[in-house]
Amino acid sequence: MKTFLTLVLASSLVAAAGAKQIKLLNVSYDPTRELYQEYNAAFAKYWKAKTGDDVVISESHGGSGKQAQSVINGLEADVVTLALAYDIDAIAQRAKLLPADWQKRLPDNSTPYTSTIVFLVRKGNPKHIQDWDDLVKPGVSVVTPNPKTSGGARWTFLAAWAYALEKNNHDEARARDFAARLYKNVPVLDSGARGSTITFVQHEVGDVLLAWENEAHLARKEFGADKFEIVTPSLSILAEPPVAVVDKTARRHGNEIVAQAYLEYLYSEQGQEIAAKNFYRPRNEKIAARYAANFAQLKLVTVDGEFGGWQKAQRKFFGDDGIFDRIYQP
């Protein structure tokens, strides 16, 4: 026992003298697994070259809302990289682990990469789906997760709403009607984005899957580019999945500097390139130009511009008795 203790002491002394072992926890949402696997390796290499310290990054993935809850309930995240600002807002408000103005601390609304909602259809596009209008036609079956439980589905709902407003001279009643008709065509409301992908791809339910752009590309890559096609609508939403340092937790772990660097490095050319390779739209224009073939041009609206921010949008559309609930009321 004594020798064991001495060994532990000695080794920790050696470690203190030489390279430090830093442990960082990144709590993220569902579809970013592949992205952060690649990014973490790149960052560890960069940090080792810069400071000589080893950094080991653990990841946790799950539905965005659930992940935020875990952090509020004490999951010790140094950084969070979630699907929507509303979920990080919740961490700021409820657990007070970071300041309310967290989104102003990093460039571009603290979102180093963006994404959007596109359509995935079966080979040859048998139902001729080109735009949102085609989704509300009778006989078209649409697969999308439940906006109440899925961050991605909330972006989808808002994209459809924005399209309906644009098409109908900003007539809310008609947008409401459009949304109701759209969700009448949804036979299954899965609880998360991955669930919907499984329903569409493996159970062969539905004519079109409304999906994150990166998830659609990934599904094609995974299940065969000869089976599915991606259709880009004329208008969609600029989905901004934000990132933030969880100040209080990072400070307690002594990880403030490395956590900050971890997020800042996402904006570097290398970070941007990894994002683009994983089908997230990079902010850096040079990298974006290099990967332009992957990202179709379309009109993108933002939550802040079109809906007055997430807090407002959440209450109006997805709260109890909100617009989404009322679609399902008889």
């Binding site: 539905g63 809302g65 659930k66 809850q69 919740a90 409820r94 439940n146 109440k148 439980t149 609880s191 959440q314 997805f318 709260g319 109890d320």
Partner: peptide, 12 residues
Amino acid sequence: PLLIVTKLEQFD
């Protein structure tokens, strides 16, 4: 139970 999960997602 799904109704409960839904409410939790809304932090309710």
